[in-house]
Design a protein around this nucleic acid. Structure first.
Length: 220
DNA sequence: CACCAGGCAAGTA
DNA sequence: TACTTGCATGGT
């Protein structure tokens, strides 16, 4: 079986098992930006508390966050952890969007995916995963998001090379799938759902997981 | 108590 | 270039 078929079959398997996930969990593209920074190495449960704090203060808004003092922002996002660095990272991201896109996320969506990605990666605090999450879930660009679960699940089942890192894994997915933002959106969401349920770091074998029968697959 | 969670950048050799 | 460490809160 060709690799592309395997990746497409896994998608169908996960979709049938878990159903549509309706990601990203946010009410607006701006909330996606904020969530993408806040969720760095952090559980979504903690992120939600921080987002709720901002929402209750009417601060889930570009201009409002822009004018909010750094220290006050840090205090409000405290439940998400790393609040010192994350407050700075959010400010850095907003500053770039203001400068390069006039503070308009729709302008980011109108830019080419490649150019927009470069702009995002130039921000201190935005790495490949955060950039791609923003491109896909806030701007609707067709880029595949590779997160910790993607690494863990697909390595554990020998579906990507052991030593492969972000860009290589992303290329494998994008070569195997049609370029379709809705598909990339749903696939990543399903991988996270699978990871949460069956592929925890501390669980070496994915007992009962939908990919169990693939455990002995091989791939260069 | 130890360990983990939807990363990233800076420091070290 | 290839590792290591700091950042920090809340849940299991």
């Amino acid at each position: 079986m060709a690799k592309g078929e395997t990746f497409r079959a896994i998608y169908q398997l996960l979709l049938a098992r878990f159903g549509p996930q309706h990601w990203w969990p946010a009410d607006s593209p701006f909330e996606v930006l904020v969530g993408a920074i806040l969720t760095q190495n952090t559980s979504w449960k903690n992120v939600r508390q921080a987002l709720d704090n901002l929402r209750q203060h009417g601060l889930l808004d570009f201009a409002a966050l822009e004018s909010l003092p750094l220290e006050e922002l840090a205090a409000l996002i405290k439940p998400a952890g790393y609040h010192g660095v994350k407050a700075r990272r959010l400010k850095n991201l907003l500053a770039m969007l203001r400068r390069a896109y006039d503070g308009d996320i729709a302008a980011l969506a109108r830019d080419t995916p490649t150019a927009a990605r470069e702009q995002l990666l130039a921000v201190n605090g935005v790495g490949p995963e955060t950039a791609d999450a923003i491109l896909l879930y806030a701007a609707g660009h067709a880029v595949f998001v590779v997160d910790a679960y993607t690494h863990r699940v697909f390595r554990r089942h020998f579906l990507v090379p052991e030593e492969s890192e972000y860009e290589e894994i992303q290329s494998i997915f994008m070569a195997a799938l049609p370029t379709d933002a809705a598909l990339f959106n749903e696939y990543h969401a399903l991988i996270v759902e699978l990871g949460k349920r069956h592929c925890k770091k501390t669980r070496p074998l994915c007992a009962g997981c939908p990919l169990e029968h693939l455990q002995h697959n091989e791939m260069a």
